[in-house]
Amino acid sequence: MKAIIYEAYGPPHVLQLKEMPQPVAKDDEVLIAVRATTVSSGDARMRALNVPYGFGLLSRLALGVFAPRTKILGMEFSGVIAAVGAKVSKFEVGASVFGMSPTFGGCYAEYRTFPESGPLAIKPSRITFEEAAALCFGGTTAHDFLRRGKLQRGERLLINGASGAVGTATIQLAKHLGAHVTGVCSKANLELVRSLGADAVIDYKAEDFTRNGQTYDLIMDTAGTAPYARVKGSLRSGGRFLMVLGGLPESLGAVWVNMTTDHKVVAGVAKVLPEDVRLLAELSKAGTYKSVIDRTYPLERMVEAHAYVDEGHKKGNVVITV
């Protein structure tokens, strides 16, 4: 099978198209013929080992000290089940599915195996494989942070970095939960953010939301440009700061904030639960939640796709067709 592999950390050109052995499903696994995957910010960071400040050594220990331990990137996928293991009962050959592989990657390939009990769901028939592949990275991250932040109906939420994969997902899920949502992004993306349901939008170049006198029950930072120290004055008493992206000093500082103030910092890697992926499938089927796709590339143009994501200006998701 064709696959994109990387054997060294670095810029996009470390990615290479090669022929690899096709995997075989174990008894509790399904074999998926991948139709689409994505280039998430997480994929780009792992490829370049470009991680938030202070996490370099920990990342090398997890991913491979001198070279990547797992050669195939790609966390999201959609496709068709090509074979099932002897003990699989929930899925059948020919079923269209989508899912998320947060730890082991492996989706930049024509085939991949996946545990039946993992974050896997039937693809809604109303959406394409490309749309399905882009549901999970932003959706599961948004849902986990909103859950841990205990967002309540009627609360005010501000999202810094509202036009990326996590931001566009958070707008939709927060509106579904009944929140008032303010999105912060560039001028070019204001209409996109508004079209997804944001009640208010702010051009970060024209207005500093931390100085406009507005306060919020929750502030989410998906871009790493609005740490707690900057936004604490915009949080109401009992407010929660959702730190999707931050360095080690900010993560350690969260403990102190939680101990000494009436604010709460929610940080750490988002959990990807099978039931969350199934929920995204239900919301997508109902038309309540959709993926936002910026650009689509074929597998053979993976280097170009990663280079575009590295620029840091993508709207929603970048999709790869396989």
Results as ranks from 00 to 15, higher is better:
Met1Thr: 10
Ile5Gln: 10
Ala8Pro: 00
Tyr9Asp: 00
Pro12Arg: 03
Leu15Gly: 03
Lys18Val: 15
Gln22Val: 10
Pro23Ile: 09
Val24Gln: 15
Ala25His: 06
Ala25Asn: 12
Asp28Met: 08
Thr38Arg: 00
Val39Gly: 00
Asp43Thr: 00
Arg47Trp: 04
Ala48Phe: 01
Val51Gln: 04
Leu57Ile: 15
Arg60Ser: 08
Pro68Asn: 07
Arg69Cys: 04
Thr70Arg: 14
Thr70Gln: 13
Met75Lys: 13
Glu76Thr: 00
Glu76Ala: 02
Ser78Phe: 05
Gly79Leu: 11
Ile81Gly: 07
Ile81Asn: 04
Ala83Glu: 15
Val84Tyr: 05
Gly85Asn: 08
Gly85Arg: 01
Lys87Asp: 15
Ser89Ala: 14
Lys90Met: 10
Gly94Ile: 03
Gly94Lys: 07
Gly99Asn: 02
Ser101Gln: 10
Pro102Asp: 04
Gly105Thr: 01
Gly106Ala: 08
Gly106Pro: 02
Thr113Pro: 09
Glu116Ala: 13
Ser117Arg: 14
Pro119Gln: 06
Ala121Asp: 08
Ile122His: 10
Ile122Pro: 01
Ser125Cys: 05
Ser125Asn: 14
Arg126Glu: 10
Ile127Phe: 04
Phe129Leu: 08
Gly138Gln: 08
Gly139Phe: 05
Phe145Arg: 11
Phe145Lys: 12
Arg148Lys: 15
Arg148Leu: 07
Leu151Glu: 00
Gln152Ala: 14
Glu155Met: 11
Glu155Val: 07
Gly161Tyr: 03
Gly178Ala: 02
Val181Met: 05
Thr182Ser: 12
Gly183Ser: 06
Val184Lys: 00
Ser186His: 11
Ala188Phe: 01
Ala198Gln: 08
Asp199Pro: 05
Ala200Ser: 13
Ile202Cys: 07
Ile202Thr: 03
Glu207Phe: 01
Phe209Asp: 07
Thr210Gly: 05
Arg211Trp: 01
Arg211Gly: 03
Tyr216Phe: 15
Tyr216Leu: 09
Leu218Trp: 11
Ile219Arg: 01
Asp221Ala: 01
Ala223Gln: 08
Leu245Val: 13
Thr260Val: 12
Thr260Trp: 10
Val265Glu: 06
Ala267Leu: 10
Val277Gln: 05
Arg278Ala: 14
Arg278Asn: 12
Leu279Asn: 12
Leu283Ser: 04
Lys285Thr: 07
Lys285Phe: 06
Ala286His: 09
Ser291Tyr: 05
Ser291Asn: 04
Ser291Gly: 13
Pro298Leu: 12
Glu300Thr: 15
Met302Pro: 05
His306Lys: 10
His306Tyr: 11
Ala307Asn: 06
Tyr308Pro: 03
Asp310Met: 09
Asp310Phe: 07
Glu311Asn: 12
His313Leu: 02
Lys314Glu: 12
Gly316Glu: 06
Asn317Gly: 08
Asn317Arg: 03
Val318Gln: 02
Ile320Phe: 01
Thr321Gly: 03
Val322Arg: 12
Val322Glu: 10
